[in-house]
Computed example of a mutant assay.
Amino acid sequence: MEFRTLRVFVEVVRAGGFSAAAGRVHATQSTISKAVRQLEDEIGMPLLIRGPAGIALTAAGEIVFQRAQTLLAGRETLKTELQELAGLKRGLLRIGLPPIGSSELFAPVFTLYRRRYPGVDIKLVEHGSDRLEELLRASEIDLAASLLPVSEEFDWLAMRRDPLVALMATDAPLAQVPGPLTLADLRTMPFILFDSGFALNRIIRAACARHGFEPEVTARSSQIDFIIRLAAAGLGVAFLPRLIARARVHVPVAQVPLDEPGTDWAMATLWRRGAYLPQAARAWLDIAAGDPAQTATDREPD
């Protein structure tokens, strides 16, 4: 039983199908199918139920999926521990960052980290927070930036807490209203959200549900500047942390404070609770916790 075959099987289950898994492991769909059949032949029983609606795990497949994740995580831990025999003169930092806020929060940490540890390779993965947590859970990365609150299976270091602002065209009626708005005030406007997998979407939808409505979503994107320009053009209302919105003042768009409990953008760096944390990752956390550029942003006036 090869680690490569186990990894392919795990990706098929996570992705929910063969074609999506092929893109994740950079292989053809036929190669993916062949690897799963090889694993089933080796085990001697089917692992997946294939149907028009997608795939489902058999009882045997459920066992193999859980054990495969443990084996793959253990393999990565072994490789990392051996690398660290040489200390941080070399090594690998595997970190996942979301598109929202990375340049503002994490670029200074990257700069200082690279200066202190030039021999450490950095493997950067960029996804929405939900996908990053999935990768962290599977031990494919050591650290991930995500929004609080998070599952108890993770420990975390707080990075920044910021209220959201609503972005809309400068001539929109609600752009002229003094004072902060609630999501209930915005329920008649179309929403411009990020792509699926972004935790900010989940936070906004949950707050809307507390007000008793489901927002009409007119557009989705993973690109911050594109979302801002859609809002500025009058397509709907978008939402960004105040820190990020202020950094995009060159775009002519109204930025209205949002007064909505439970929707603060609370960014943290996560790692698996109780799991082995590589020395390269611990060094990153030390810098992130003590970097003056990070703490200074929390003292800026409202």
Rank of each mutant, 00 (worst) to 15 (best):
A245T: 08
P257L: 01
Y276K: 00
L200G: 11
I192A: 07
G234S: 05
R273N: 09
T188C: 14
A233L: 04
R210A: 06
V249H: 15
I244W: 11
V237A: 08
L181R: 12
G212R: 05
V251L: 01
L270Y: 09
L230F: 05
G234D: 03
I224L: 12
A207L: 13
C208N: 03
T218A: 15
F239K: 12
C208I: 02
A209H: 04
T182P: 12
L243Y: 03
Q223T: 09
V251I: 01
T182K: 13
P215W: 00
P180D: 01
A209Q: 05
E214Q: 12
A219D: 02
Y276N: 07
R272H: 04
R187H: 08
I244M: 13
L193K: 03
F226E: 08
A219K: 03
W265N: 07
A232Y: 02
T188A: 15
P257C: 00
H250N: 14
A247D: 05
I192K: 01
E260R: 00
G179R: 03
A209W: 05
R272K: 10
F191C: 10
E214N: 08
T188W: 14
S221Y: 07
Q255P: 04
E216H: 11
P241V: 04
V256T: 12
P261Y: 02
R242F: 13
D264H: 07
G212V: 05
L270V: 08
A254T: 12
I204W: 01
V217Y: 12
T218Q: 15
T269P: 08
W271Y: 15
F226R: 07
P180H: 00
V251W: 02
L186P: 06
P261V: 10
R187C: 09
G236H: 09
A233V: 06
L258E: 01
A231Y: 03
S222P: 09
F194D: 09
L230M: 08
R210D: 07
R242W: 13
R248V: 04
L181K: 13
L240N: 03
L235N: 12
T269L: 13
P180N: 00
T269R: 11
A199Q: 10
C208F: 02
P252C: 11
G236I: 05
F213Y: 12
P257H: 02
G274D: 00
L277R: 03
V217W: 09
Y276H: 08
T263H: 08
I203G: 07
N201A: 03
